[in-house]
Amino acid sequence: MQKSLLINADKCTGCLQCEMACSYENYGVFNTSKSRIKVFDFHETGKKVPYTCTQCDEAWCLKACPVDAIRIDATTGAKVVIEDVCVGCKVCTISCPFGTVNYVQDTGKVQKCDLCGGDPACATSCPTGAITYVDADWTGLDKMRAWADKLGNQPSA
């Protein structure tokens, strides 16, 4: 069964633990500039919004790659960059409609979220539950439950 990252921005405090966990998982260093998940702080509204790859089924990045360096992890469904194959041409960064594939100067390769092989460090490190890793078919479950509660879980007249 595949899982998806589920992001609830209302719970995000902007602590950036997810960004540090991501860079530590992938590069062994605490470095928000190397994170594959990014928290956006909209100061004028107070909203903090984590954003990362949604692992498109028909992935633009995968289709655009001229050297077949982005492949599907059959278990997690993640679109994974094979670093040994990537030539750093950056075409995938142009093709991704969401901006979630990006070039890394230090390595000369691109990087994107690979779901950490099925145990995403961002979700594990999030202190508020703003980022969770749930059944891919049921990312709407919490919202449905909230509405079910509101509409159906009232005392009988």
Binding site: T13, G14, C15, L16, Q17, M20, T45, G46, K47, K48, P127, T128
Partner: peptide, 19 residues
């Protein structure tokens, strides 16, 4: 009060964002 906000790395998040 609109929401709370954390500083870098903070898992307490006492900061206030107000309007």
């Amino acid at each position: 009060l609109v929401t709370n906000q954390a500083c870098f790395g903070c898992t307490i998040a006492c900061g206030r964002i107000s309007k």
